[in-house]
Simulated scan of single mutants.
Amino acid sequence: MLLLLPPSEGKTPAPDGSSPLDLAALSHPELTKQRRAILAELAAVSTRPDATAVLGVSDGLAAEVARNTGLALAPAAPAAQVYTGVLYAAAGLASLGPAAAARAQASVRIFSGLWGTVAPGDRIPAYRLSMGVTLPDVGPLARAWKPALASALDERSAGDVVVDCRSATYVAAWRPPRGADWVEVRVLREVDGKRSVVSHNAKHTRGVLAGRLLRATTEPTTGEDVLKSAQDLVGTVVLTEVSTGRDQTLVEASLLDARGRGPRTLELVLA
Rank of each mutant, 00 (worst) to 15 (best):
S254L: 10
M1Y: 11
A210H: 04
E184F: 01
D257V: 00
E41Q: 05
V191K: 07
L4H: 06
R143Y: 04
V238P: 15
T221W: 11
A152R: 09
D59R: 00
D137R: 14
V45M: 03
V57Q: 10
D122M: 06
V242Q: 13
L266T: 07
D181E: 11
S254F: 04
L26W: 00
G60R: 10
P15M: 09
L266V: 07
G10E: 08
V57Y: 10
A106G: 14
L3S: 04
P20G: 08
R206N: 11
V82A: 04
R123V: 01
A180P: 08
A100V: 15
S243C: 01
A25K: 12
Q248L: 14
L3Q: 02
A24L: 06
W182C: 09
T240L: 09
R109G: 09
S243R: 08
V187E: 02
R143N: 03
V57M: 11
S243Y: 03
G70Q: 09
P136F: 03
S95Q: 13
L239D: 14
G207H: 03
T244I: 13
I124Y: 04
S107N: 15
P177S: 09
P20F: 05
V108L: 06
G132K: 10
T236R: 14
S229K: 07
D225C: 01
S167I: 15
N68F: 04
V237K: 09
G262M: 09
P20W: 00
V208L: 11
A80S: 08
T217K: 13
A72S: 01
S19V: 01
K228S: 14
A74G: 02
P98G: 03
G132M: 14
V54P: 07
A74V: 01
K194C: 04
F111E: 05
L71G: 08
L39C: 03
R186A: 10
G10M: 13
V118Y: 01
P13D: 09
L93W: 12
